[in-house]
């Protein structure tokens, strides 16, 4: 559980240091005033896609040997 807490801390620090939680940054994004938020989201998604494709291709498992818990969203 400690590592989950530490990951949470890293996530909170990142959102704040990257100013992603600033209402102003979000507003600037919707007014197309800056690349910042698009870079943050696009960068995270691009790297996430690379990871997911590699995980699928090479059959990567979690540390307990289980398949990765990729949630399958459904149209409902």
């Amino acid at each position: 559980m400690l590592r989950i807490l530490l990951l949470g801390l890293l996530f909170g620090i990142t959102l704040t240091m990257g100013e992603v939680i600033s209402w102003f940054r979000i507003q600037e994004m919707f007014l197309f005033g800056s690349f910042h938020m698009y870079g943050v989201i696009g960068g995270a998604v691009a790297l996430g896609v690379v990871f997911n494709l590699a995980a699928r291709r090479y059959g990567w498992l979690s540390d307990t040997g289980q398949p990765l818990d990729i949630h399958q969203y459904e149209f409902g």
């Binding site: 590592r3 989950i4 990951l7 890293l10 996530f11 990142t14 240091m17 990257g18 992603v20 870079g39 943050v40 989201i41 696009g42 960068g43 995270a44 998604v45 691009a46 790297l47 996430g48 990871f51 995980a55 990567w60 979690s62 540390d63 307990t64 289980q66 990765l68 818990d69 990729i70």
Partner: peptide
Amino acid sequence: TGPVIAAVMVALLLFGR
């Protein structure tokens, strides 16, 4: 910022979450 967010997501998956 973007890559660290991706790293957090990847770490959670590798931890079975």
